[in-house]
């Protein structure tokens, strides 16, 4: 076969180029450890996500020192949870699946980008060194409202990040000879212990309790005050734990209108 010398030279150069391209990608994969979304995850029934431990409650979990897992559900035309909150200086593994059609989960301005296919779970691990706020878009056409499908990923400064949840249950109406009770529960989603103070205020009365909530557990306490001390009328109450606050109003009445009150089952 007759090939001109120049063209042989070009043939050689072209082969060098091709090998160099493959070598660069291989360096990225092996040298830098950039791994592809792959078949590592088990398949899942897209119609039964509510029976799956990870996706029945889309959320972020603390799974190790500076390690978090985010379970994300994409559906027409939204992401859950939204926003996704993780701390800076962390390593986050996203698990994303779809309940309906093919979507994507693409964090704008980053290389976090995956197709989301019903029946499959896309998993990706990324490190977030700096705080920042990112948009999340669906970049695969998923139906008539596709352009409205967006979410947020918030990387908050490490010292401002916690996974504390405060919940308070209080009575609405209490007889004057009874006690006003607030059932306080403080959930700590982090693996480390949470040292904090529960501060409560009912009317003029104040309470304070230093507590240690163990990692991945919930601390429950009850605050009581004699209704008589508050006196008849409406009394505002509030409970604060760090930056979280819950509040309400309790009414102390002279006497409950009938016997069907609090003692009745």
């Amino acid at each position: 076969m007759k090939i001109h010398t120049y063209e042989k030279l070009w043939l050689g150069a072209a082969m060098v180029l091709i090998v160099a391209l493959i070598a660069t990608i291989t360096y990225g994969a092996v040298g830098l450890g950039i791994s592809m979304v792959d078949d590592e995850e088990e398949t899942i029934d897209p119609d039964a996500l509510d029976e799956d431990d990870r996706f029945n409650d889309p959320r972020v979990e603390h799974v190790g020192e500076n390690e978090y897992e985010a379970y994300v559900v994409a559906r027409t035309f939204m992401y859950q949870p939204d926003p996704i909150e993780v701390p800076a200086n962390s390593e986050v593994t996203f698990y994303v699946t779809s309940t309906d059609v093919i979507h994507s989960f693409s964090v704008v301005g980053t290389n976090i980008n995956t197709m989301v296919i019903p029946g499959e779970v896309s998993s990706m691990t990324a490190e977030f060194d700096e705080p920042g706020e990112y948009g999340v878009v669906c970049n695969e056409y998923c139906g008539s409202g596709h352009h409205t499908m967006e979410g947020q990923l918030h990387v908050v400064p490490e010292d401002e990040f916690d996974m504390t949840e405060l919940e308070v249950e209080g009575d609405d109406e209490v007889a004057e000879d009874d006690e006003v009770t607030l059932n306080v529960s403080v959930e700590n989603g982090m693996l480390d212990d949470l040292e904090t103070t529960i501060e409560a205020e009912i009317g003029e009365e104040t309470f304070e309790e230093d507590v240690t909530v163990e990692g991945d557990s919930t601390y429950e306490t009850t605050i009581t005050v004699d209704a008589a001390d508050l006196g008849e009328g409406d009394h505002d109450w509030s409970v604060t734990v760090d930056d979280y606050e819950d509040s309400g109003t309790v009414t102390v009445v002279d006497d409950l209108e009938d016997d069907g009150g609090d003692d009745d089952e």
Partner: peptide
């Protein structure tokens, strides 16, 4: 810049 293809309105509420 991350602007997606195949979308009617690549203008979003929560970010730019």
């Amino acid at each position: 810049l991350g602007i997606p293809r195949r979308t009617a309105e690549p203008q979003y509420q929560g970010f730019e």
